[in-house]
Amino acid sequence: MKKFWAIITVLLILFFLGSGLIPDLKIYKQNNLSQKTGKVYLNRTVNDDSPFKEIDKKLYGEANDVENNAANSVTSVIVDYRALDTLGEVTVLFLAITGVIALLGKSKKNNRILFEKPNYILNASSKILLPLIVLFGFYIFIHGHITPGGGFQGGTIVAASVLMMYFAQNNYKLKNNRMKVLESFSGLSFLIFGLLGIFIMGDFLQNFLELGIMGKLFSGGLIPIIYILVGLKVSAELSNVVYEFMGEE
């Protein structure tokens, strides 16, 4: 009987939401970006053989004045145009992790979860894999402005290495105080770079470094610096979550 009423409720929501959405199918697939964005954005080009090259010629690997010079547009939305949103997002993550530590931290029943005794191959190979996984995470958040990826993905991969060590070795212990120091250092540096933007250029988190050449590692001004800080912060926070969830000895 309960399931019947649940299905009726779900179908009512489907009717109201769905009937409102039917006429909007036109916007899919023939999405016209020229109605949403300006001509400056639309005519940006990075190749020689483009029809727009007389208007605005910007070559990949040579150009140096495309707004913020990050090859990855999603990264430039997250870290440049809407960097204040990212600051809020990092704050939400910090608050949630504070809640986890407050709930699980000082619990008397918070003993370490122990698994069956891991065999020698798992034990040895996890030590070999640890630096490789950390290196891959760092690669992803350092190259966030050129290739797909960025601070959040790379930070999660670094935290996954801590997770692997906890699952593979029963006597592994994360040095969580260092992680807390790293987290507060990177969070503070994010704010300090934002304030430097106010003092030098006049706006919070505005870019004040050289933009460089699109496609090179040192390009995009503040974008790689802020994404590296976000990556360090996310990796420290999620490692702390793993530490609190697994429990201490």
Partner: peptide, 15 residues
């Protein structure tokens, strides 16, 4: 959307 796919695979499916 390769960025979102990476995030979903690392965070949603893994962590």
């Amino acid at each position: 959307a390769p960025d979102v796919a990476m995030t979903e695979a690392a965070i949603g499916a893994g962590f």
